[in-house]
Design a protein around this nucleic acid. Sequence first.
DNA 1: GTCTATACCGAGATAGAC
DNA 2: GTCTATCTCGGTATAGAC
Lengths: 170, 170
Amino acid sequence: MLLSYQQGFRKTTLADIAEKAGVPLGNVYYYFKTKDEIAHAIIDERLSQFYALRAKLESMASPKDRLLAFAQMTMNNRQQLAKGGCEMGTLCSELQKEPGELAIEAGRLLSEPLGWLTAQFRALGKAPAEGLALHLLSALQGVSVLANALHDPAVVAAETAYLKAWIEEL
Amino acid sequence: MLLSYQQGFRKTTLADIAEKAGVPLGNVYYYFKTKDEIAHAIIDERLSQFYALRAKLESMASPKDRLLAFAQMTMNNRQQLAKGGCEMGTLCSELQKEPGELAIEAGRLLSEPLGWLTAQFRALGKAPAEGLALHLLSALQGVSVLANALHDPAVVAAETAYLKAWIEEL
DNA sequence: GTCTATACCGAGATAGAC
DNA sequence: GTCTATCTCGGTATAGAC
């Protein structure tokens, strides 16, 4: 999964995966029938990671604190974002270029976070919750794209500081 | 160039390109020595398109009008963004996954627009110009990623309306 | 300069021994 | 269930006739 993030899913060969897993090439097909099936597994794993994060954030009582913590996670991750972009966003974007069901499935990597953010803004009593969630997630995804393009984690720091102030002032 | 946008650069074969251009496969190598050279040509072409756009926007006297027109262009392009994402952003992101000089060259697809936006905010007398430009471009890139993931042009409409109001109020 | 044919290689997928 | 060997196809790139 790390490789498919660093070099892109399609560029990562089954030989790469087998080597990383310490098993011979032919053995991969015992666990996955096709490479697309591996894509599905990676999407599921990323979604599980998000659900775990979401559960952790929901231990906070205040929706505002949850939103601030969400933005802060991007901030904390800025070195990695500068190197390879967002794990969810880059995978999602890559798979959008493919025909078939994989693109739809990959869309959940962003629609699930968007839905959760919407719920937080709604709990805060701010409207339109959808629009605010969209603005926040767009900014975070966009700054990840830019940080990756510029190879500069500083832009993430600047933008997340801006967004956290924006959340505070809502 | 259209194909490499629709299906991704690496997924687009030289056979695809040759067919689209109406020439036999072998002939492509008369114009480009390698596929990477084609990538460079596409980047150059996209940059030229941006320079042309920039020149057109600079015919407007007011920096604020330029910024509003820039946001409006994304709005006008929302159908295409929902289908395949931003031409500059998706190409840039894809090429970031590759080693070598191509990634750096592709970074200009976003650093050039960012630099121009910064100049506009500076001309407006708003500070920090870099931070404001970063916020605007992040939001536009991010909403393009989301529109593509959700296959929904409406999110572009919502976010650009938000951003245009934000520019007006600066 | 333009085309056909083909070499070469890497990647996904399979067969079948153990 | 685990491994080796191999098939097959598609894609980049080249050779060389016209």
